[in-house]
Design a protein around this nucleic acid. Structure first.
Lengths: 150, 150
DNA sequence: CCTAATATCTCGCTCATCGAGATACTTGCC
DNA sequence: GGCAAGTATCTCGATGAGCGAGATATTAGG
Protein backbone atom coordinates (compact mmCIF):
# COMPACT_ATOMS: atom_id res chain seq x y z
CA UNK A 1 0.00 0.00 0.00
CA UNK A 2 1.40 3.32 -1.07
CA UNK A 3 -1.58 5.26 0.26
CA UNK A 4 -1.52 7.55 3.24
CA UNK A 5 -3.21 6.29 6.39
CA UNK A 6 -6.75 7.70 6.58
CA UNK A 7 -8.26 9.16 9.77
CA UNK A 8 -10.90 6.97 11.38
CA UNK A 9 -13.84 9.25 10.49
CA UNK A 10 -13.17 9.05 6.76
CA UNK A 11 -15.22 5.91 6.55
CA UNK A 12 -18.30 7.87 7.65
CA UNK A 13 -17.50 10.66 5.20
CA UNK A 14 -17.32 8.26 2.32
CA UNK A 15 -20.56 6.74 3.45
CA UNK A 16 -22.21 10.16 3.51
CA UNK A 17 -20.98 10.87 0.01
CA UNK A 18 -22.28 7.50 -1.12
CA UNK A 19 -25.68 8.35 0.31
CA UNK A 20 -25.94 11.64 -1.54
CA UNK A 21 -24.79 9.91 -4.72
CA UNK A 22 -27.46 7.22 -4.37
CA UNK A 23 -30.16 9.76 -3.67
CA UNK A 24 -29.15 11.79 -6.70
CA UNK A 25 -29.08 8.69 -8.83
CA UNK A 26 -32.50 7.61 -7.64
CA UNK A 27 -33.83 11.05 -8.51
CA UNK A 28 -32.28 11.01 -11.96
CA UNK A 29 -33.68 7.56 -12.67
CA UNK A 30 -37.12 8.53 -11.51
CA UNK A 31 -36.98 11.70 -13.57
CA UNK A 32 -35.94 9.81 -16.68
CA UNK A 33 -38.68 7.23 -16.19
CA UNK A 34 -41.26 10.01 -16.06
CA UNK A 35 -40.03 11.95 -19.05
CA UNK A 36 -38.55 14.84 -17.11
CA UNK A 37 -35.05 16.14 -16.62
CA UNK A 38 -33.20 16.34 -13.31
CA UNK A 39 -33.88 20.07 -13.27
CA UNK A 40 -37.61 19.50 -13.69
CA UNK A 41 -37.64 17.17 -10.73
CA UNK A 42 -35.74 19.63 -8.57
CA UNK A 43 -38.17 22.32 -9.64
CA UNK A 44 -41.11 20.11 -8.76
CA UNK A 45 -39.68 19.43 -5.32
CA UNK A 46 -39.28 23.13 -4.70
CA UNK A 47 -42.79 23.86 -5.91
CA UNK A 48 -44.31 21.13 -3.76
CA UNK A 49 -42.40 22.35 -0.71
CA UNK A 50 -43.59 25.89 -1.28
CA UNK A 51 -47.16 24.72 -1.78
CA UNK A 52 -47.04 22.71 1.44
CA UNK A 53 -45.65 25.72 3.28
CA UNK A 54 -48.32 27.98 1.78
CA UNK A 55 -45.78 30.19 0.03
CA UNK A 56 -46.88 31.36 -3.42
CA UNK A 57 -44.54 30.32 -6.25
CA UNK A 58 -43.52 32.48 -9.19
CA UNK A 59 -41.10 31.93 -12.06
CA UNK A 60 -38.74 34.41 -10.46
CA UNK A 61 -38.54 32.56 -7.15
CA UNK A 62 -38.27 29.21 -8.88
CA UNK A 63 -35.46 30.32 -11.16
CA UNK A 64 -33.53 31.85 -8.29
CA UNK A 65 -33.96 28.66 -6.27
CA UNK A 66 -32.51 26.57 -9.09
CA UNK A 67 -29.85 29.00 -10.23
CA UNK A 68 -31.38 29.48 -13.68
CA UNK A 69 -31.61 32.76 -15.53
CA UNK A 70 -34.93 34.11 -16.70
CA UNK A 71 -34.78 32.51 -20.13
CA UNK A 72 -34.05 29.10 -18.73
CA UNK A 73 -36.75 29.54 -16.14
CA UNK A 74 -39.35 30.37 -18.78
CA UNK A 75 -38.38 27.25 -20.72
CA UNK A 76 -38.62 25.17 -17.55
CA UNK A 77 -42.06 26.51 -16.66
CA UNK A 78 -43.14 25.88 -20.26
CA UNK A 79 -42.08 22.25 -19.96
CA UNK A 80 -43.81 21.70 -16.63
CA UNK A 81 -46.96 23.38 -17.90
CA UNK A 82 -46.94 21.33 -21.11
CA UNK A 83 -46.72 18.19 -18.96
CA UNK A 84 -49.76 19.36 -17.04
CA UNK A 85 -47.90 19.44 -13.74
CA UNK A 86 -48.38 23.15 -13.07
CA UNK A 87 -50.54 26.03 -14.28
CA UNK A 88 -49.65 29.66 -14.91
CA UNK A 89 -52.06 32.12 -13.32
CA UNK A 90 -51.67 35.90 -13.56
CA UNK A 91 -51.49 37.54 -10.16
CA UNK A 92 -54.41 39.96 -9.85
CA UNK A 93 -52.63 42.10 -7.24
CA UNK A 94 -49.43 42.64 -9.20
CA UNK A 95 -50.20 41.95 -12.82
CA UNK A 96 -46.55 41.69 -13.81
CA UNK A 97 -46.33 38.49 -11.84
CA UNK A 98 -47.31 34.96 -12.72
CA UNK A 99 -48.27 32.53 -10.00
CA UNK A 100 -47.41 28.88 -10.42
CA UNK A 101 -50.05 26.46 -9.20
CA UNK A 102 -49.12 22.82 -8.85
CA UNK A 103 -51.63 20.38 -10.28
CA UNK A 104 -52.84 17.31 -8.43
CA UNK A 105 -50.84 15.25 -10.91
CA UNK A 106 -47.66 16.86 -9.63
CA UNK A 107 -48.54 16.05 -6.03
CA UNK A 108 -49.23 12.46 -7.00
CA UNK A 109 -45.97 12.27 -8.91
CA UNK A 110 -44.06 13.60 -5.92
CA UNK A 111 -45.76 11.07 -3.66
CA UNK A 112 -44.92 8.21 -5.98
CA UNK A 113 -41.26 9.11 -5.81
CA UNK A 114 -40.81 10.22 -2.25
CA UNK A 115 -43.50 8.12 -0.64
CA UNK A 116 -41.69 4.79 -0.57
CA UNK A 117 -38.39 6.42 0.28
CA UNK A 118 -39.93 8.32 3.16
CA UNK A 119 -41.75 5.27 4.47
CA UNK A 120 -38.58 3.23 4.50
CA UNK A 121 -36.65 6.01 6.21
CA UNK A 122 -39.34 6.49 8.85
CA UNK A 123 -39.28 2.77 9.55
CA UNK A 124 -35.53 2.98 9.87
CA UNK A 125 -35.79 5.90 12.28
CA UNK A 126 -38.12 3.86 14.46
CA UNK A 127 -35.19 1.62 15.28
CA UNK A 128 -33.28 4.42 17.01
CA UNK A 129 -33.82 5.73 20.51
CA UNK A 130 -34.17 9.39 21.39
CA UNK A 131 -30.49 9.97 22.07
CA UNK A 132 -29.44 8.33 18.84
CA UNK A 133 -31.91 10.39 16.85
CA UNK A 134 -30.55 13.53 18.50
CA UNK A 135 -27.03 12.54 17.44
CA UNK A 136 -28.15 11.96 13.87
CA UNK A 137 -29.91 15.30 13.81
CA UNK A 138 -26.90 17.13 15.18
CA UNK A 139 -24.64 15.42 12.66
CA UNK A 140 -26.82 16.28 9.67
CA UNK A 141 -27.19 19.83 10.89
CA UNK A 142 -23.43 20.17 11.22
CA UNK A 143 -22.79 18.80 7.76
CA UNK A 144 -25.37 21.14 6.31
CA UNK A 145 -23.59 24.10 7.84
CA UNK A 146 -20.20 22.80 6.74
CA UNK A 147 -21.47 22.57 3.17
CA UNK A 148 -22.94 26.06 3.28
CA UNK A 149 -19.89 28.05 4.31
CA UNK A 150 -17.70 29.03 1.36
CA UNK B 1 -53.14 25.23 9.61
CA UNK B 2 -54.81 23.25 6.89
CA UNK B 3 -51.91 20.81 6.60
CA UNK B 4 -51.99 17.23 7.70
CA UNK B 5 -50.11 16.37 10.87
CA UNK B 6 -46.64 15.09 9.98
CA UNK B 7 -45.01 12.12 11.70
CA UNK B 8 -42.23 13.04 14.11
CA UNK B 9 -39.40 11.67 11.94
CA UNK B 10 -40.27 13.90 9.01
CA UNK B 11 -38.16 16.64 10.49
CA UNK B 12 -35.09 14.45 10.14
CA UNK B 13 -36.04 13.47 6.61
CA UNK B 14 -36.34 17.08 5.55
CA UNK B 15 -33.00 17.76 7.18
CA UNK B 16 -31.42 14.92 5.25
CA UNK B 17 -32.82 16.26 2.01
CA UNK B 18 -31.54 19.69 2.89
CA UNK B 19 -28.08 18.25 3.43
CA UNK B 20 -27.97 16.54 0.06
CA UNK B 21 -29.26 19.73 -1.54
CA UNK B 22 -26.54 21.82 0.10
CA UNK B 23 -23.84 19.36 -0.88
CA UNK B 24 -25.04 19.33 -4.48
CA UNK B 25 -25.17 23.09 -4.51
CA UNK B 26 -21.68 23.38 -3.10
CA UNK B 27 -20.46 21.03 -5.80
CA UNK B 28 -22.18 22.96 -8.56
CA UNK B 29 -20.79 26.26 -7.29
CA UNK B 30 -17.30 24.87 -7.04
CA UNK B 31 -17.59 23.38 -10.52
CA UNK B 32 -18.76 26.66 -11.99
CA UNK B 33 -15.98 28.58 -10.29
CA UNK B 34 -13.44 26.26 -11.88
CA UNK B 35 -14.88 26.28 -15.36
CA UNK B 36 -16.29 22.79 -15.28
CA UNK B 37 -19.77 21.36 -15.38
CA UNK B 38 -21.43 19.27 -12.68
CA UNK B 39 -20.80 16.18 -14.78
CA UNK B 40 -17.10 16.97 -15.03
CA UNK B 41 -16.86 17.24 -11.26
CA UNK B 42 -18.67 13.95 -10.76
CA UNK B 43 -16.32 12.39 -13.29
CA UNK B 44 -13.31 13.78 -11.48
CA UNK B 45 -14.52 12.40 -8.17
CA UNK B 46 -14.94 8.97 -9.72
CA UNK B 47 -11.50 9.14 -11.32
CA UNK B 48 -9.83 10.24 -8.09
CA UNK B 49 -11.58 7.47 -6.15
CA UNK B 50 -10.46 4.89 -8.68
CA UNK B 51 -6.91 6.22 -8.60
CA UNK B 52 -6.85 6.08 -4.81
CA UNK B 53 -8.15 2.52 -4.91
CA UNK B 54 -5.58 1.56 -7.54
CA UNK B 55 -8.24 0.65 -10.10
CA UNK B 56 -7.34 1.64 -13.68
CA UNK B 57 -9.84 4.01 -15.31
CA UNK B 58 -11.04 3.86 -18.90
CA UNK B 59 -13.62 5.86 -20.84
CA UNK B 60 -15.91 2.85 -20.78
CA UNK B 61 -15.90 2.53 -16.99
CA UNK B 62 -16.24 6.25 -16.53
CA UNK B 63 -19.19 6.55 -18.89
CA UNK B 64 -20.96 3.63 -17.25
CA UNK B 65 -20.38 5.15 -13.82
CA UNK B 66 -21.97 8.42 -14.92
CA UNK B 67 -24.72 6.97 -17.08
CA UNK B 68 -23.40 8.54 -20.28
CA UNK B 69 -23.29 6.87 -23.67
CA UNK B 70 -20.06 6.50 -25.58
CA UNK B 71 -20.41 9.74 -27.52
CA UNK B 72 -21.03 11.77 -24.41
CA UNK B 73 -18.17 10.03 -22.66
CA UNK B 74 -15.75 10.88 -25.43
CA UNK B 75 -16.81 14.52 -25.23
CA UNK B 76 -16.38 14.46 -21.44
CA UNK B 77 -12.90 12.95 -21.66
CA UNK B 78 -12.03 15.53 -24.34
CA UNK B 79 -13.04 18.32 -21.98
CA UNK B 80 -11.11 16.95 -19.02
CA UNK B 81 -8.05 16.37 -21.18
CA UNK B 82 -8.26 19.85 -22.68
CA UNK B 83 -8.32 21.24 -19.14
CA UNK B 84 -5.16 19.29 -18.38
CA UNK B 85 -6.84 17.31 -15.59
CA UNK B 86 -6.35 13.88 -17.14
CA UNK B 87 -4.29 12.23 -19.88
CA UNK B 88 -5.25 9.56 -22.39
CA UNK B 89 -2.76 6.68 -22.59
CA UNK B 90 -3.19 3.68 -24.87
CA UNK B 91 -3.17 0.42 -22.96
CA UNK B 92 -0.24 -1.67 -24.25
CA UNK B 93 -1.87 -4.97 -23.22
CA UNK B 94 -5.20 -4.40 -24.95
CA UNK B 95 -4.65 -1.78 -27.58
CA UNK B 96 -8.37 -1.13 -28.04
CA UNK B 97 -8.42 0.41 -24.59
CA UNK B 98 -7.49 3.87 -23.43
CA UNK B 99 -6.35 4.40 -19.85
CA UNK B 100 -7.21 7.64 -18.12
CA UNK B 101 -4.47 9.01 -15.90
CA UNK B 102 -5.35 11.80 -13.51
CA UNK B 103 -2.91 14.69 -13.47
CA UNK B 104 -1.55 16.22 -10.28
CA UNK B 105 -3.67 19.27 -11.06
CA UNK B 106 -6.79 17.14 -10.73
CA UNK B 107 -5.69 15.81 -7.36
CA UNK B 108 -5.01 19.36 -6.17
CA UNK B 109 -8.38 20.51 -7.47
CA UNK B 110 -10.13 17.69 -5.64
CA UNK B 111 -8.28 18.56 -2.44
CA UNK B 112 -9.21 22.21 -2.71
CA UNK B 113 -12.87 21.29 -2.90
CA UNK B 114 -13.14 18.36 -0.54
CA UNK B 115 -10.35 19.25 1.83
CA UNK B 116 -12.10 21.96 3.85
CA UNK B 117 -15.39 20.08 3.82
CA UNK B 118 -13.72 16.91 5.05
CA UNK B 119 -11.79 18.75 7.74
CA UNK B 120 -14.91 20.37 9.08
CA UNK B 121 -16.81 17.09 9.05
CA UNK B 122 -13.99 15.26 10.83
CA UNK B 123 -13.96 17.95 13.50
CA UNK B 124 -17.70 17.55 13.83
CA UNK B 125 -17.37 13.78 14.18
CA UNK B 126 -14.91 14.29 17.02
CA UNK B 127 -17.74 15.67 19.11
CA UNK B 128 -19.60 12.34 19.06
CA UNK B 129 -18.91 9.31 21.21
CA UNK B 130 -18.57 5.80 19.86
CA UNK B 131 -22.23 4.88 20.29
CA UNK B 132 -23.41 8.02 18.57
CA UNK B 133 -21.07 7.45 15.65
CA UNK B 134 -22.38 3.93 15.34
CA UNK B 135 -25.93 5.27 15.19
CA UNK B 136 -24.99 7.76 12.48
CA UNK B 137 -23.29 5.04 10.47
CA UNK B 138 -26.25 2.72 10.76
CA UNK B 139 -28.61 5.50 9.75
CA UNK B 140 -26.60 6.49 6.68
CA UNK B 141 -26.22 2.88 5.69
CA UNK B 142 -29.96 2.34 5.96
CA UNK B 143 -30.75 5.41 3.87
CA UNK B 144 -28.29 4.32 1.23
CA UNK B 145 -30.04 0.97 0.95
CA UNK B 146 -33.45 2.63 0.94
CA UNK B 147 -32.37 4.82 -1.96
CA UNK B 148 -30.96 1.89 -3.90
CA UNK B 149 -33.97 -0.36 -4.00
CA UNK B 150 -36.36 0.41 -6.84
C1' DC C 1 -8.23 -17.33 -40.48
C1' DC C 2 -12.78 -15.29 -40.23
C1' DT C 3 -16.61 -14.04 -37.57
C1' DA C 4 -18.29 -12.11 -33.30
C1' DA C 5 -17.37 -9.29 -29.45
C1' DT C 6 -15.28 -5.20 -27.35
C1' DA C 7 -13.44 -0.29 -26.82
C1' DT C 8 -13.31 4.00 -28.52
C1' DC C 9 -14.32 7.58 -31.56
C1' DT C 10 -16.99 10.54 -35.33
C1' DC C 11 -21.04 12.73 -37.19
C1' DG C 12 -25.36 15.03 -37.12
C1' DC C 13 -29.00 16.22 -34.24
C1' DT C 14 -31.91 17.69 -30.12
C1' DC C 15 -32.74 20.46 -26.47
C1' DA C 16 -31.54 22.80 -21.87
C1' DT C 17 -29.49 26.92 -20.75
C1' DC C 18 -27.36 31.46 -21.52
C1' DG C 19 -26.91 36.60 -22.76
C1' DA C 20 -29.23 40.37 -24.50
C1' DG C 21 -33.00 42.78 -24.91
C1' DA C 22 -38.25 43.44 -25.48
C1' DT C 23 -42.71 44.00 -23.11
C1' DA C 24 -45.91 44.88 -19.53
C1' DC C 25 -46.87 46.45 -15.26
C1' DT C 26 -45.96 48.95 -10.68
C1' DT C 27 -44.01 52.38 -7.64
C1' DG C 28 -42.24 56.70 -6.21
C1' DC C 29 -41.14 61.30 -6.96
C1' DC C 30 -42.15 65.99 -8.77
C1' DG D 1 -51.74 63.25 -12.75
C1' DG D 2 -47.70 61.88 -15.19
C1' DC D 3 -43.17 60.33 -16.07
C1' DA D 4 -38.72 57.89 -14.77
C1' DA D 5 -36.93 54.02 -12.66
C1' DG D 6 -37.58 49.49 -11.06
C1' DT D 7 -39.49 44.76 -11.38
C1' DA D 8 -41.48 40.31 -13.49
C1' DT D 9 -41.76 37.75 -17.29
C1' DC D 10 -41.02 36.50 -21.89
C1' DT D 11 -38.68 36.20 -26.77
C1' DC D 12 -34.82 35.47 -29.78
C1' DG D 13 -30.52 33.66 -31.32
C1' DA D 14 -26.42 31.20 -29.91
C1' DT D 15 -23.74 27.73 -27.28
C1' DG D 16 -22.74 23.31 -25.87
C1' DA D 17 -23.76 18.75 -23.30
C1' DG D 18 -25.57 14.55 -24.42
C1' DC D 19 -27.91 11.07 -27.66
C1' DG D 20 -28.47 7.59 -31.62
C1' DA D 21 -26.31 5.51 -35.28
C1' DG D 22 -22.58 3.88 -37.18
C1' DA D 23 -17.33 3.82 -38.30
C1' DT D 24 -12.73 2.03 -36.93
C1' DA D 25 -9.40 -0.70 -34.57
C1' DT D 26 -8.26 -4.50 -31.81
C1' DT D 27 -8.92 -8.98 -29.54
C1' DA D 28 -10.97 -13.68 -28.79
C1' DG D 29 -13.11 -18.12 -30.19
C1' DG D 30 -14.33 -21.85 -33.21
Amino acid sequence: MVQRQEPAGMELIHLLREVTLQLDLAGAQFAGRNGLHPTDLRALIGLLDAARAGVPSTPGRLGAHLGLNSAGTTALVDRLERLGLIRRVRDTRDRRRVLLEVDERAVALGQSFFGPLIDRTLALLDTFDTGERAAIRRFLDGVREAAQSP
